[in-house]
Design a protein around this nucleic acid. Structure first.
Lengths: 349, 349
DNA sequence: TGTTAGCACTCAAATCAACGGAGTGCTAAT
DNA sequence: ATTAGCACTCCGTTGATTTGAGTGCTAACA
């Protein structure tokens, strides 16, 4: 079902125009603003065809046409041109970004929060960034220390320098020497292992060696398990949720409420991230309308990118906006940010 | 300017009614639903007086009356009765809370997040909770350890078991023995000190003793300073921002946008917290309309409470809703939660 | 055969008049 | 001092009318 050239051109013109104005576009407009030199009547015929093929539709009889999800899809897949034009604006963004990256690289959390804010501001859409997660979290370093009577502090560092802390209450304090031995034991037996590997037998092996300190060893293992499990400790930073009010088609109180709730709760956003992990190769994904895995966003389009801070440690950047978002700009910006993030740490080494 | 009893009763009736219905209340309603046995006409005269005194006003001629900020203030200060009636509903809340508190006390963060969510759900208003902060943060424990080549991990535990981590990049690694010595040095010289005290001379004193490891000592001090400074690391958890859509007077797109932005950014919310620290005695504060320190909330009422996890370690709980919120219920709920939080850790000991 | 001019038709959105109802303020009677 | 009664005000709703943008179809044209 290939489209002949002219239809394609008209479709493209319709979509472009609609992206710009947000208004249904009529035959007259197309006739005027394309180099096809066709009368409105002819355009109308073509539009009828395009409608029959499902690329566009009318919100009501006697209105202009609006791209359907299918139309957008075609546009995104085949018709987008890389925007070279707005180079200057883009340059500034890149600069802003560089600044952040040089500024505060030591604190990933702050970096990502700021990044999200910047993204939202630059695009006028809503932005989210998930903190990096290792697909297979590996333990890099463990340290148990005594903070005060009956309280131990367990610090666990994972690959990717993700740090977890846990205070452990103990009935009986242990002396320094034992503590040292325990630490060595932990590090030597858990280092470099993933959760699954730890579950497979290590526990019983350690039980043997921990000797008297079984109780503590158990607590530590629990802490490690908790730290290492990717499940619940998924941080997501969001910004610009209220940008959706800039788009009347999303500002309807109910839609707005649902969308903003989604951003506030963050729970649903995880779907976007899990999705993403499935095909990391390209790194960029575009969901249009019903395609998005988050049902509260079925009137939106969502674009996500996967970044990789270090080998195997990745997170997701996402932009959520109206279906008539500026796909080119967003894809571009995301690519950009992705590249930046991909190289922050790697370059440093 | 005391109000005679009858006027007071009428005012109270107006406010109660308005809190219930959200509609301007007319003389007929008051006449019917009070035990004063007065005709609408009489009520009207009194209402005219009350209006002149500034306690109520009409949104437009020929509409009923609405309480003004001044009216609400009088109500909150003098006319609120403790609601004993809804005991059963309240019981359930308390139970819910107990459950949380017993469940996951070890992770304050999770606890507070859940608490905020629960608050928002129970009240149908927006809720915020600030993570506990020590007015004077004291260092309790410091540990420096080597994670990998050229990377040290600095863990700092503050009073109130607030844990901070920082990765420090170093040019040259140091041997175990020196590390041990450094740790002892840090702990002995910084333990129990506040930021101000550290700034006052300790640094130079330490410089002397740190000897060769000056570079690292500096980094650690920086990390401590960062961890200890109350400024930027103020965490605030929010929930139920979208509840405001339940109240038409706040659902206007612009107001809603501003309010929700306030919740999303969180920056402005800090004002509420700082305010609160000024008078901790009572623990509960009510801001009505223009009284609130956050200008985006001038059409709302805000109620806050200060809780204290441990001696000197406190945070703020806040509820933001329409001016016609159920003050009694909210104050009650906050008192409740405050009490619970006040005793979580203290009881444990 | 593809293109176009012309025309009747449709529908959403804006404008306007009319009306009902809730509530008031005032006056005169109790 | 209280109240019944009445004229008045103003909001919100409803329905009719108009306007304008845009369409689909037909017939003429190149």
């Amino acid at each position: 079902m290939e489209l002949e050239g002219r239809k394609l051109k008209i479709l493209q013109a319709i979509i472009r125009n609609y992206l710009d104005t947000g208004e249904p576009v009529g035959s007259r407009t197309i006739s005027k603003y394309t180099d096809l030199n066709l009368s409105p009547a002819t355009i109308r015929n073509e539009m009828a065809d395009l409608e029959e093929l499902g690329y566009i539709f009318q919100p009501h009889t006697s209105a202009g046409r609006i791209p359907s999800d299918k139309g957008y899809r075609l546009y995104v897949d085949n018709m987008m041109k890389d925007k070279e034009q707005e180079l200057k604006a883009r340059e500034k963004e890149v600069d802003d970004m560089r600044e952040f990256l040089n500024d505060k690289v030591d604190k990933v959390e702050t970096l990502l929060k700021n990044m999200a804010k910047m993204l939202a501001n630059n695009t006028d859409y809503a932005a989210m960034i998930s903190a990096p997660q290792a697909r297979k979290n590996k333990v890099k370093f463990i340290q148990l220390s005594q903070v005060e009577d009956h309280r131990m502090l367990c610090v666990i560092v994972l690959e990717g320098n993700i740090i977890k802390n846990k205070i452990i209450n103990v009935k009986e304090d242990i002396d320094n020497e034992t503590l040292l031995k325990l630490n060595i034991l932990f590090n030597s037996s858990l280092n470099g292992l993933t959760l699954e590997e730890i579950n497979l037998g290590i526990i019983s092996k350690m039980n043997g060696q921990a000797g008297e300190q079984l109780e503590i060893a158990r607590s530590v293992l629990d802490a490690v398990a908790e730290a290492i499990s990717t499940e619940d400790n998924l941080e997501i930073y969001t910004s610009g949720a209220t940008n959706i009010f800039k788009y009347p088609e999303l500002s309807d109180n109910n839609k707005a409420k649902e969308l903003i709730s989604t951003f506030e709760e963050k729970q649903l956003l995880t779907t976007l991230i899990e999705m993403d992990n499935e095909n990391i190769e390209t790194g960029i994904r575009v969901y249009i309308g019903e395609e998005t895995p988050v049902h509260t966003m079925k009137d939106c389009s969502v674009i996500t990118a996967t970044y990789e801070l270090e080998e195997g440690v990745h997170g997701t950047i996402g932009i959520i906006g109206p279906k008539r978002m500026d796909y080119e700009k967003v894809v571009d910006t995301l690519k950009n940010i992705k590249d930046q993030l991909d190289s922050v740490y790697k370059k440093k080494e």
